[in-house]
Nucleic acid binder design. Structure first.
Length: 510
DNA sequence: AAACGGAGCAACCGCCAGTGC
DNA sequence: GGCACTGGCGGTTGCTCCGTT
């Protein structure tokens, strides 16, 4: 196999390796190690060049090579890392035990690249393809492609659902003004025909949910019903598929990473709106907006539609935009100012200039409003969002993250690309600002990795504490040892946040 | 059954960075 | 600093397999 040799060297064989050659190579390396690849063929009795021997060994004969199909998790990691690292196959391979760069490269070119194209994503930039010239049916039918931000999974789901029953799914001209900010974009989507499908779903009519399922849409992570079950423990959540799960640290979804590409992103953020905040009086009514504030997600960054049912507490569905990020608020605040803050609202404009502000609970309305007097300038935000500054959290475990950081941030261009890549992928980062100590919250940090930490060692109410909780829970959902790696992959630009946090989580999609 | 074409993938090529002299 | 050598990496090739016509 392989192409014909372009320059035959005297007496050196090229082309496919025979079993006999493989045996010789394996036997020699097992006994002597490979040493100098240049001299190896001679010593091993092979009529090959050293380079060919090295390639054969590293790509095929090495004992720790993992053969066979790629798992969904591996696919997920490859896509995520490719979004961040590009065609740096060896770097990607270093995060996949037993996989070679060559194998990953081949798998990308033959499978994953096509899959992204089918999803309407440019396999190079991982951004949406433009709808006009691409000729892709989905894009031309549903003009989401013109949006300025990453097409996120929810949008695809809306499209899929809308396709059979809602032909007039044009949200580009609906009287909502000309702004193209993501929040408005989602608002328009929400008010569209397809959005109505979801709004109707709020009724939780079994027959209607069945209809939604029958049109091929996975809405399991989209609609959530919440009820505070008792004073001390968790909120009971019921998603649209009728499954019940318990907070804290539980995802509605329990699906494979590959299927998560279509919806899990939503489910996690929905959880963020619940269960984060324990009412000090143990009230049965969940104030979802307050919950949003507590997790650092500003309501204006989400399309929200809520219905209050006295018997069930609040029922809220929303979808936040993709460009949320973590900021270390201590860099911008001092003293008592922090106590006024209930949320962060921030985004990154195309020019790399961070913008944002602090949010405060408005007790009169129950909503969160801008806290203008504390809103930092764009310059301050830009400085705060500098990855080595605010996103490089100081932590005793920092040494464990250095290697990854070095790889990600080897130069400024790469560093910026990495940061932007995360945002472009719709990766959301949350910070549990001033959350009460008994709160339960998921936090997705940006320092690239995290160590597994015993529960008793978890710091309360700080960034790394939440991070560790996540990792711990995640590790328990997997096999313990993979938690750290998986977390690392998540933090390196993953498309979605996925997997269940508790192994006994009800599978909503079953 | 034969021809065809696409998919999959092992293997090669050229380039580059690191190292030692 | 310049050169040669080595190993590593990403892009590309072309053979084989397999499904379709």
């Amino acid at each position: 196999m392989g192409r014909a040799p372009c320059c035959e060297k005297q007496g050196l064989k090229k082309g496919p390796w025979t079993p006999d050659e493989d045996k010789k190579l394996i036997a020699y390396i097992q006994q002597h190690g490979h040493g100098s690849w240049r001299s190896l063929p001679k010593h091993a009795g092979l009529l090959r060049c050293g380079k060919s021997c090295r390639l054969r060994w590293t790509n095929y004969l090495r004992p720790d090579i993992k053969r066979g199909n790629f798992s969904s998790e591996e696919e997920h990691i490859i896509i995520s890392l490719h979004a961040l690292l590009g065609n740096r196959w060896s770097s990607i391979a270093s995060h996949l035990q037993g996989r070679t760069d060559n194998e990953i490269k081949n798998y990308w070119n033959t499978h994953l690249k096509k899959r992204l194209l089918q999803m309407g994503l440019d396999p190079v930039s991982h951004k949406p393809l433009m709808s006009d010239a691409s000729g892709m049916g989905m894009c031309s039918k549903f003009p989401f492609g013109a949006a300025t931000h990453q097409r996120i999974p929810w949008e695809s789901s809306v499209r899929q659902c809308a396709a059979p029953s809602h032909g007039n799914f044009d949200i580009t001209d609906d009287g909502f003004g000309t702004e193209n900010q993501s929040s408005d974009y989602f608002l328009r989507a929400w008010r569209s025909d397809a959005g109505e499908v979801f709004r109707k779903g709020l009724n939780f009519s079994d027959s209607y949910l069945q209809q939604l399922r029958s049109c091929g849409l996975d809405i399991s992570g989209f609609l959530v019903r919440a009820r505070h079950t008792n004073k001390n423990s968790s909120y009971e959540l019921e998603n649209a598929m009728g499954s019940n799960v318990n907070m804290p640290l539980t995802l509605v979804e329990n699906q494979s990473p590959s299927s998560a590409l279509s919806s899990v992103d939503c489910s996690i953020t929905q959880h963020m709106s619940f269960g984060l905040h324990h009412d000090s009086k143990g009230s049965e009514v969940v104030n979802t907006i307050e919950g949003l504030g507590k997790c650092g997600l500003h309501q204006n960054r989400a399309v929200m539609e809520s219905a209050h049912e006295p018997s069930m507490g609040s029922l809220t569905t929303y979808k936040p935009v993709a460009s949320e990020a973590v900021v270390k608020q201590e860099d911008l605040l001092s003293g008592g100012e922090a106590s006024m803050i209930s949320a962060l609202d921030y985004d990154n404009h195309e020019n790399g200039n961070w913008d944002g502000g602090f949010m405060q609970d408005d007790k009169s309305t129950g909503h969160i409003c801008d806290l203008d007097e504390l809103t930092p300038s764009s310059l301050q935000w830009s400085q705060a969002m500098e990855i080595d500054h605010s996103l490089g959290f100081t932590d005793p475990k920092q040494a464990a993250t250095d290697a990854i950081k070095k790889e990600m941030c080897s130069d400024k261009d790469n560093r910026d690309a990495n940061l932007n890549g995360c945002q472009d992928l719709g990766h959301m980062f949350f910070m549990p600002l001033l959350a009460p100590e008994d709160s339960t919250c998921l936090d997705f940090g940006h320092d690239g990795t995290a160590q597994l930490t015993a529960e008793s060692e978890l710091p309360k109410c700080n960034m790394l504490g939440w991070q560790d909780q996540f990792v711990s829970a995640e590790a328990s959902a997997h096999d313990g040892s993979s938690g750290e790696l998986y977390w690392s992959s998540l933090m390196k630009g993953t498309v979605v946040l996925t997997t269940s946090l508790q192994p006994n989580c009800t599978n909503a999609t079953a």
